[in-house]
Amino acid sequence: MRKKILDMLYNNSRISYEDMSVMLDIPKSRLESEIAAMENEGVICGYPTMINWEKTDCEKVSAVIEVKVAPQRGLGFDKIAERIYRFDEVESVSLMSGGYDLSVTIEGKSMKEVASFVHEKLAPLESVISTATHFVLKKYKEHGVTLVDEKKTEGRMKITP
């Protein structure tokens, strides 16, 4: 049941309890308590809105930074990851397999702001061995949603047998 609820919220977190209850065939009270439980347990961590910033006047720059770090004895990567993810500028941090260790995404107002974060805050951290910053030029798809404008017209005829 949780999977069903989560799938639905993942696609549209603003859906009403009433619609959800009908569509999933789960009583509304049950649904509410289940969602509340998942919020408490940290299964549901928030309900942010997907925004295509490129369509607004707001200047936004994002970058993906590959970070190589020296893991610390007994703490592995967690300690250094924490030191990085606590910065407000940091959008996401993941531990990666392969050529580098941490993938850090940063959002800033300008390229300069991102650059200064990297060389003033990130690179000087003791365990950080190296960084490679990749600026995002264009986002095509995020969270399963296509961000570029597709001319989507109703291709179907209005009445068919």
Binding site: R156, M157, K158, I159, T160, P161
Partner: peptide, 26 residues
């Protein structure tokens, strides 16, 4: 002719009509 046909003609004239009349997946 198919009974749907004459109805189809009326609907096609109305550009702002929304349809629940389609027999194929969306």
């Amino acid at each position: 002719p198919s009974g749907i046909r004459k109805y189809f003609d009326i609907v096609s004239e109305m550009e702002d009509a929304i349809s629940l009349g389609v027999g194929e997946p969306d």
